[in-house]
């Protein structure tokens, strides 16, 4: 009886249903815990949800690869979800038209430098090519960063860790540097949060003001599009 009870988790994970259910469950539970904690910017809700999955897998002694194969059925939706990001992009178009000049002078250099700084520093510190490919799109919003790192030959788990830390660090550095540089324009602050801190920075920007939030979404979207186009092409030329 006990033996068959212990073998039950692995039986249930033979079809993708258990992995999908666990992912949904952890998503809702993680969100709830995140609300209880008062929505801290240093600990994104997605990290709590992931920890719930990790704990469940370890407690039930289910292999991580088995979970990943099952969850792949859900992750398949990332393709159409990425296409769906075209809708907010289209809705931002009037901002882009109104401010095309500062955007043109700021966004491409900022997005290129964000990738160059991280790859260069990682290379100087002795990172392998795989790690450099995983860290290069670290300022890009996750669904698009995943497709970029696949093009470059990086590791998705390493990228995901890098994305979370980058989002938290970008939020921290923006709050410090804005005081030092005495910047009060919420359009500039929002844009910097979105370009460098993707979705995590954008959440912070919406807490500051709707203007900062709108510009953060814009910065995040344009950085994603620009980096998705430039990085794989640059990578092909350099490596």
């Amino acid at each position: 009886m006990l033996d068959s009870l212990l073998a039950l988790p692995n039986h249930l994970f033979e079809t993708p249903i258990a992995a999908i259910a666990l992912t949904l469950l952890a998503f809702f539970a993680g969100n709830q815990v995140f609300q209880w904690m008062g929505r801290p910017s240093w600990c994104p809700g997605i990290l709590i949800a992931a920890l719930i999955v990790v704990l469940t897998l370890v407690l039930l002694s289910v292999n991580y690869e088995v979970y990943q194969q099952g969850a792949a059925w859900l992750v398949l939706l990332l393709g159409p979800a990425t296409v769906a990001l075209g809708i907010p992009l289209y809705q931002q178009m009037h901002h882009i038209r109104a401010l095309w000049k500062p955007i043109l002078f700021t966004l491409p250099p900022a997005a290129i430098l964000a990738a160059v700084y991280s790859v260069l520093l990682a290379w100087l510190a002795g990172a392998t090519p795989e790690v450099m490919a995983s860290l290069a799109p670290k300022s890009v919003t996750a669904p698009i960063a995943i497709s970029i790192t696949e093009q470059l030959g990086g590791s998705i788990p390493v990228l995901m860790g890098g994305l979370l830390i980058t989002g938290v660090m970008a939020t921290f550095w923006v709050s410090v540097l804005v005081k030092i540089l005495n910047i009060q324009d919420h359009r500039v602050i929002g844009f910097a949060l979105g370009i460098n801190g993707h979705a995590i920075g954008t959440v912070r920007a919406f807490e500051l003001s709707p203007t900062a939030g709108a510009f953060s979404s814009l910065g995040m979207g344009l950085t994603a599009v620009f980096t998705a186009l430039f990085l794989p092409i640059a990578w092909r030329l350099v490596f």
């Binding site: 992912t23 990943q68 859900l74 788990p157 995901m160 860790g161 979370l164």
Partner: peptide
Amino acid sequence: MLIMPGVVGV
């Protein structure tokens, strides 16, 4: 939620 399984891998 769709990117969360990737975070689990970390």
